[in-house]
């Protein structure tokens, strides 16, 4: 159910659509090619190295390091109500990168390039429909999604 992923979702259908279901249950998943073992985050169904379409999900720890960040004041359609918001790009401990919002555990003045962060799966609780995402938090932040359960 990839349409669950994001405040505004632009691509509801993908071969890695189970990613959003895993995220809802508190798991951050990348992909691993079953033929050559090549790993990717964000996950991809088709291997860029050996071209195989045979992949499995592999869980990532969410431990990450900040590469860069910016606070967005001028927001695009669909995001005006949450502006200003701060996004960061992080290197994941295992491999790959992701882009996400900073969560409540980190104030804007604390943000430094190179800082350690924890990627935490989240559900938009204020929305009726299921909407999942992840946020960048202080290391050690608990995964509230997993704790509260379905």
């Amino acid at each position: 159910m990839f349409k669950w992923f994001g405040k505004v979702n632009f691509v509801p259908y993908t071969k890695v659509s189970d990613f959003a279901g895993y995220l809802k249950d508190g798991h951050l998943m990348g992909s691993r090619c079953k033929v050559c073992g090549s790993e990717s985050f964000p996950p991809r169904a088709d291997c860029s190295q050996c071209l195989s379409g045979n992949f499995e999900y592999t869980e990532y720890s969410g431990r990450a390091k900040l590469v860069s960040y910016t606070q967005i004041h001028a927001a695009p359609t669909g995001f005006e109500d949450v502006a200003p918001y701060t996004i960061g790009v992080v290197d994941l401990e295992e491999n790959g990168r992701l882009l996400a919002w900073f969560g409540d555990t980190i104030s804007d003045t604390e943000i430094r390039i190179g800082m350690e962060l924890q990627v935490v799966p989240r559900i938009f609780e204020e929305l009726q429909e299921i909407r999942v995402y992840y946020s960048l938090e202080k290391p050690g932040t608990t995964w509230s999604v997993a704790e509260s359960g379905p």
Binding site: V8, F10, S68, I72, A74, P76, L99, A100, Y133
Partner: peptide
């Protein structure tokens, strides 16, 4: 698929 869902903008990318 992985970025615009966080409200990225063109200025934001270059700001990174």
């Amino acid at each position: 698929q992985w970025e615009s869902i966080f409200g990225t903008t063109f200025p934001a990318y270059y700001a990174l």
